[in-house]
Design a protein around this nucleic acid. Sequence first.
RNA 1: GAUCCCUUCGUCUAGUCAGGUCUAGGACACCGGGUUUUCAUCCCGGCAACACGGGUUCGAAUCCCGUAGGGAUCACCA
Length: 561
Amino acid sequence: MTYAEYPVRSTKKQAPGPQEFSDMTVTRFAPSPTGYLHVGGARTALFCWLMAKHNKGKMILRIEDTDQKRNTPTAAQQVMDDLRWLGITWDEGPEVDGPNGPYYQSERRDIYDRYMKQLLEKGSAYYCFDTPEELNALRQEAIAQKKNFAYPRPERFPDEQEVAKAQAEGRPVTVRFAMPNTDIIVHDIVRGAVRFGVDELNDFVIQKSDGVPSYHFACVVDDELMEVSHILRGQEHLMNTPGHIALQDALGFRRPQYAHMSVTISEGGGKLSKREQSKTLRNAIKTMATIDLEKVAEVGGLSADEMATFMANKSNPDAPQISAMAEYLGVHLPEINVIDFLKSGYIPEGMINFIALLGWSPGDDKEIMALDELIQLFDITRLTKSNSLFDRQKLTAFNTEHMKMVAPERLLEHFKRYLAINDLPMGQADDATLAHILTACQGARTLADVAAKCNFLYQDVTGYDPKAIKKVLKKEGVKDILIKIRTALDSLDNWDDDSINKAVEELCTQNDVGMGKIAQPIRVAITGSMVSPSIHDSLVLLGKERTLGRIDQLIEFMDTL
RNA sequence: GAUCCCUUCGUCUAGUCAGGUCUAGGACACCGGGUUUUCAUCCCGGCAACACGGGUUCGAAUCCCGUAGGGAUCACCA
């Protein structure tokens, strides 16, 4: 079948079915390991995974590490950790293996070489010896003429002798793919039929001068060999697709189905990226009146010059430097990477649900969905065409819902991981205590809220919130009440919910006051603030001795008011 | 600049392919009220959109054309 004959029925619902593929749906997530997994990548992975699971197929994880300059050795591991935290698993790939490995492209060189040779022999690809400077000049010329740059394909392709000669002269040797002389129509599940004219199509590089295949080539070869039936990726790849299709045809490969997803935009506008974090930090620094810039630079490990260019909006330091400076200044950076959300106390169930709704919906009013519902309802044809903005407030709302829905044991697991990654003293507590803290904080929006609300358990009261002083302590008769509370609590034989509740209720009736008059002074005494879980939970968690001690401490403080 | 994609409440979206049931539905946010020993949760109510202009049609959010705006891509990066 040629491109033109490929059936076009609807622009959306029915993209043509894969021709020669088995019934098995195979998707793949193919990150390039340059750092932590960010939300955009997580969304792509999620849709690949949902699609595979919904169709009882499989998802492959493939690491696209053909560019040595960009890859860091630990990045692949980080990406896998982040995927696992989200609950996204892969059926084939690193650490689980499978019949089509290896799953690191850097280990597949011999495979690519075979196909490269085939293409060269067929005359579908040819060697080039241009230097970057020459190429650049060509491009400038095209711009000057207001034309699209297209590599000038030679009349006759260089032979092996010329290659050897070029090599001897020290010229770079690359291989370009000779694009066929036809328009190419991409049949996309999301976008329908998209036509690319011959004039737009360019002979692109498929083998770099270091001998490594380019992304385009490796990706096409691997997708065929790994039997990938559906390629889900960001719309930034749409323009690459005609090239990939032509490559598939030249190599006699099958054509997978494509779905180019819309992009996720950040609140500040533009693509969600680290740049947003630099921007937030920079703006925060600018609003700080008294600030020791030298000290900040030192914390971030930047030289004075680097700091200056950063502040002048001319450079963006690396993520660790940004984080170090933000932490030092107490600036909360917008979360970008999956791990940022973990650190901020979001749980994977909430993240997954929220991300799934960025560019997809089940078609009715259903929004809060557990993982198995998501799998059951997922339908690739329902992907939205337009870009969507990442709204953290809505994420928080979803997180709140899932905090209530998740099984207690699971929430406990998430909580322990949260405490560990933030290295909080609460992490030393035993499971029973943590479980109690969690139930005492039902309704919390994030795990960070839980930790903050119960932080008083792990920290002495060193002062009192001015608002608490004004609203609670400076009221008539508080000191007397406090003394009565102390006496009542001291006399309790059992330190449990019932006894504490009963004691507090009795204090209310005896003194003819409402709950607030008793509960609030206690709260201020034990936390120094006006926020804590219910009184009975707070007191049980704190223990009798410490409770009484903190009440004494407050009674003493009352005299200084 | 060229090419491609997109456009419904502030935001995520349902509805568009098969035009009437849409005085456009839901959710988050926001505003107002209520429950609660604080915070959070929870409950009730409110505000709020078919980008614009032309067609086609008895009838347009839905089909066609144009305009405007936004995004993506234009690498020996993936």
